[in-house]
């Protein structure tokens, strides 16, 4: 855990659609330290996936900047330097669509290796075997399979192997376990953690599942409708959630045991729908669903400020900042 490897400064991304301007990401500032896992938690419309996509260069920001190792990389990946593309990788949510269904696993990974200049056939096969081994998939059984014959967990492992093939430093994981069942999810998370330690990777882990986020992230940022509403170390967030939305997320997680039920913070009943990102509510975006809404919440947007003077735990809520 050392210096900043990635900094996101007041990042905004708006999309023009037939229905209007979608403000997917509306001004977020984050930093990620080398070797850590930053969890981005939110539901649909929160902008968490778009943030990940921006980091990887799928789009260029509408405004704001992304700084990687001190260099500004706020443009699409085709305009970035080649070695940079290899250093920042991504694993998408749905492995069935992120892997070419009619290609063999070997060719899927081989095209990545070719991009980093490895041409020798033996070298390629060797590396692919090692990569498949490192994600617990025996190469003899998987090299010449096609994605359509494989299950979700195996596919995701292959997607991870593919991401690892270019020796990356930072991997964006866009809801990598949301399409998997619990046992497979546990397997993949274990795999990710092991690989992270072995290869000294930095992760941005995007998810809607707070419980999973807790177990893999060092720090968590909670997003709602394009903005960060709370950010803290994992432990701190769970002991001491401040924002009503964070508490609502907690309350919605179904739990198994009485003791888990007890440690859940004050029950905040989930009400209302997530508003549209085209015309977000004025003032605090969460006010339409907040049980503690006041007049000031409709008037002014709250600013991220430290909780009890602790600068590593910040919250954007008028109730807290008074």
């Amino acid at each position: 855990m050392g210096n900043n490897i990635l900094m996101i400064l007041d990042l905004k991304k708006y999309f023009k659609t037939n229905y209007g301007l979608v403000r997917a990401v509306d001004g977020i500032t984050l930093s990620v330290n080398e070797g850590e896992t930053l969890g981005l938690v939110g539901e649909s419309g929160s902008g968490k996936s778009t943030t990940g996509h921006l980091v990887v260069g799928m789009y260029s920001p509408t405004s704001g900047s992304i700084i990687y190792k001190g260099k500004d990389i706020s443009f699409t990946s085709d305009k970035r330097p080649k070695d940079l593309r290899n250093e920042i990788q991504i694993v998408f949510q749905d492995p069935a669509s992120s892997l070419n269904p009619s290609k063999y696993v070997k060719d899927i990974i081989a095209s990545q290796l070719r991009l980093i200049g490895i041409k020798d056939r033996w070298e390629i096969e060797n590396r692919i075997s090692n990569l498949l081994d490192s994600v617990d998939l025996p190469p003899e059984s998987y090299m010449y399979r096609k994605p359509r014959d494989l299950g979700g967990g195996e596919l995701q492992a292959i997607a991870i192997a593919r991401a690892l093939s270019t020796n990356p430093k930072l991997i964006v994981l866009d809801e990598p376990t949301s399409a998997l069942d619990v046992i497979t999810q546990a397997k993949i998370v274990k795999l990710l953690k092991r690989v992270q330690e072995q290869m000294k990777l930095t992760y941005i882990f995007i998810t809607h599942d707070l419980a999973v986020a807790k177990h893999i992230s060092d720090r968590i940022a909670v997003m709602y409708l394009g903005k960060v509403v709370e950010m803290a170390d994992s432990e701190e967030l769970f002991k001491n959630p401040q924002h009503p939305y964070t508490m609502m997320l907690f309350s919605s997680i179904p739990v198994l045991s009485e003791e888990e039920r007890k440690i859940r913070p004050k029950k905040v009943r989930s009400i209302g729908e997530i508003p549209s990102a085209i015309s977000p509510p004025p003032g605090c975006r969460f006010h339409t669903r907040c049980p503690f809404v006041n007049e000031i919440c409709i008037d002014r947007e709250p600013v991220l400020s430290p909780v009890n003077g602790n600068s590593s735990h910040i919250v954007a809520c008028h109730l807290i900042s008074e």
Binding site: G57, S77, F92, S98, L115
Partner: peptide, 13 residues
């Protein structure tokens, strides 16, 4: 717009 195409574009194919 499938993700495998997007992935190929991002990684510079």
């Amino acid at each position: 717009n499938e993700y495998y195409v997007i992935y190929a574009e991002i990684t510079g194919m």
